[in-house]
Amino acid sequence: MTAAEPGAAQPGDTRRCIIGAVLRIIGRDGVAAVTNRRIAKEAGVSLGSVTYHFATQHDLLRESLLRFVDEETRRFTALADDSRLDRIGLAEAAALVGQVAGGTEFDSEHIAPFELYVQAGRDERLRAAAAECFAAYDRLAARILTALGVADAERLAGTVVALVAGQQLRRLATGSSAADLVDALLLLAKGAAPTAAAPPVPPPGPVSPAGR
């Protein structure tokens, strides 16, 4: 076996290049536009390289979704493990989530996951990867809600994630700003966060007999 030539593309590099091309194609034109010939042209690799690394289109879609999931899981797990969240306030929490979710420009590679989530609704083989990604979102949401003193943080985490995902989809479809996402999060969090306890009402005093 001969050693790889200096500067030659390694198998892992070729796979990443192909997956990146798939995400860009999906983001621009949807899942239906993914063909081996188009991938090869977009990635700058031979047609044989595409079929060598990915035997079926399902393999391509699954690996593309998994790459996004891996990156998102790593990023959100690091945020959830940050000890500074223990001291976070309501406004800071909303701003953090708005920054994380709203700070992403909707280029083709970031639109692609929305397409892949819809595709997971059609292809149950993609659902485990999609579920893994949403689990990472849920962990961060639960961590923030717990830090804010919200009861049933684990149960409410999915609702918060659904709100963020819905606002992201709205932002993608309408071009609205990330500020709308922060406002929605503050509205939800204010309703769920504990309020200051009201002062106890003193018991009624003895009632004086009539005429005394």
Rank of each mutant, 00 (worst) to 15 (best):
V100R: 07
T73G: 01
R74C: 08
T77A: 10
E124Y: 09
V100A: 09
G102W: 00
A80V: 02
A80Q: 04
R127T: 04
S108L: 07
D82M: 04
Q99Y: 10
R127M: 11
A130I: 00
A130G: 00
A95E: 15
A80G: 02
S108K: 04
D107T: 14
A91F: 11
A80W: 04
G98R: 04
D86M: 11
F114T: 08
L126M: 04
R122H: 12
G102M: 03
G98E: 09
F76C: 00
G98W: 01
F114H: 13
A101P: 00
E124W: 12
Q119K: 05
D81I: 00
L96F: 01
D82Y: 07
L96Y: 02
R127K: 08
L90V: 03
G98T: 08
A101V: 09
F106E: 10
A95K: 13
A128E: 13
I111T: 07
R75T: 13
H110E: 15
V97G: 00
Q99E: 15
A95M: 10
R84M: 08
L126N: 02
A112W: 10
I88P: 11
F106I: 09
T73Y: 02
H110Q: 14
L85R: 07
F114V: 10
Y117D: 10
G89Q: 12
A94V: 03
V97I: 15
A94P: 01
